[in-house]
Design a protein around this nucleic acid. Structure first.
Lengths: 301, 301
DNA sequence: CAGAAGCTATACAAAATTGCATATATGAAA
DNA sequence: TTTCATATATGCAATTTTGTATAGCTTCTG
């Protein structure tokens, strides 16, 4: 335990944590392997603990390293946010805005909206982080997030943009081979497309539709875009946003009355970013477009 | 706008923001003034913007510098939190815990509790941050906070430890000179001790007791400890926690029926710190002791 | 108005960090 | 088992960063 930890050392630490070896981290960071090694060594001496056990095949993080990792990662995301903020200074809408959204949203819904946004603001740069993990806006992992859950953190600006209607769908060709079920019970005889790991969302959905459980799924993937692809390929019956499915005439709604779920959707932003024109412009654009998108009566009744 | 911002440069930036000059920052950081100057210059070049306008008497932060300051400050508090976390690794309860509490709490209530905590855990170090500003646990400005408001952030472990009863008190000598008021209306003729600036807490308190407004206060200070001191010196009538006042036989409750306010009190901690023994031990100790403290029927009826 | 006390900026030497080249160890595959 | 690929560690030179000393500027004060 010495006087101060060098902040630069933490970048090397993060690199090693991420890549599992000094050499790999060095390649990623654009410095040399001896330097990374010395950084890790200096950090260990400065913190007074061992961060990695030198094993035969690379470096294995100790419990302490795992414990400290989130702190260092937080510093990195803040540094990147600072960089984004700096690039946007000055008048006008410019710089980079980082948007976090679920995979389906990011791949199917947002692209045209972002295209039109970029047409009005040519100097705007967009980073789209597609993950179903809820990113931490307070830790500045993203500037703006599109979420299917109400934000519970204060210090966030949040706008409700409507509810995404989710229904069951199947491809026309699948239904030609397997006649559409007429009751929930008949779903058992069908190939259901669903999730692999259990999530809070799934648990809540299952309360409403007990049939929609893991054991019933014939095909499982955690990627909702993967589910869309299976659906479009005629693999079976799966859940899909109605507004999305209505774009593809080959997707037919199944059991429209029995299965219907609404996902309240929110656009959220860190309060501090209100003074940033790039973020407010993007925020309001997304609010406007998503409101329009979600107000479409997706499934033909 | 170059490739990457050097993290170390940000420390110098923070120093200059805090001290207003290269020389002052250099003294505080333990490096030399030319180095700080070069750091700031490098940072400006790397971000592609001017951070300070070189004025006659030191450096004046630009709008951009003010905008970027919270990011850099966030990195610093995270770095300090990392340091605390590192110092506590290994088995046993050791390392530093940073506790945020209001001034009265920190000065009057917590000290004996922390003393007993340190007696059981000699290797534990305590940092007590006394401020009425609500510190941001998510930004790791503190590990544990004692608050008079329910936490609204998720990702926090929170425990309700009771309600602090607040009543009006006056010193025995003051009451000897000025007979105690028998009705709220009579308060007008007394020297009231109250707050200077308006806070959310004050606004909510005023809804219950309209007499308790800024214009009525003969003595104003934002420091609640200062209010206690004025109270003890017999300056007038002021609000005080009942449990606290009951320790001083010279403090007499005034209008016990008409004035009574309860402040729900919470101990909160960042979720991630659950795996840290120093934090959980401190957390539970505070919960236990504060629960006992707040369950004392403070004012003799 | 002179001079002291702040401050920043720069030249040059000292110290530190870094990269390069290389030695060495280990696991996987021929 | 040998060989290859990949890993970490270290000596040494090159580069970069830092500190020292100093010059120049502004403000405040007697």
């Amino acid at each position: 335990m010495k006087e101060e930890v060098g902040w630069e050392l933490l970048r090397s630490f993060l690199g090693v944590m991420q890549h599992g070896s000094l050499s790999g981290a060095a390649r990623a960071l654009g410095i040399t392997q001896p330097t990374v090694g010395r950084h890790v060594h200096a950090l260990e001496r400065s913190l007074g603990l061992t961060l990695f056990t030198r094993s035969r095949t690379g470096l294995l993080p100790t419990e302490g390293a795992l414990e400290l990792h989130p702190y260092a990662a937080g510093m990195r995301s803040t540094a990147e946010a600072l960089r984004r903020a700096a690039s946007s200074l000055g008048s006008g809408v410019r710089g980079t805005v980082r948007i976090s959204a679920s995979e389906v949203m990011g791949m199917e819904v947002l692209p045209p909206m972002l295209t039109s946004l970029r047409q009005s603001h040519g100097e705007l740069r967009i980073e789209l982080v597609m993950t179903n993990r809820v990113q931490d806006l307070l830790q500045r992992e993203a500037d703006i997030a599109v979420r299917m859950a109400a934000p519970r953190q204060e210090a966030l600006v949040a706008r409700h943009v409507g509810a995404a209607v989710v229904g069951l769908y199947a491809h026309r060709e699948y239904l030609a081979r397997h006649p559409a079920p007429q009751s929930p019970a008949e779903l058992q005889r069908h190939a259901l497309i669903g999730f692999d790991t259990d999530t809070p969302f799934l648990r809540s959905a299952r309360r409403a539709f007990p049939q929609w459980n893991r054991a019933a799924f014939a095909m499982r993937t955690d990627s909702d875009v993967g589910q869309m692809a299976l659906l479009r390929a005629g693999c079976g019956i799966g859940a899909c946003q109605a507004a999305l499915a209505s774009r593809d005439p080959n997707l037919i709604r199944v059991l429209p009355r029995a299965f219907r779920y609404e996902l309240d959707t929110w656009v959220t932003m860190h309060e501090d970013l209100r003074s940033s024109s790039r973020c407010t412009v993007t925020f309001h654009h997304l609010v406007r477009e998503l409101t329009a998108y979600l107000s479409v009566r997706g499934a033909r009744p």
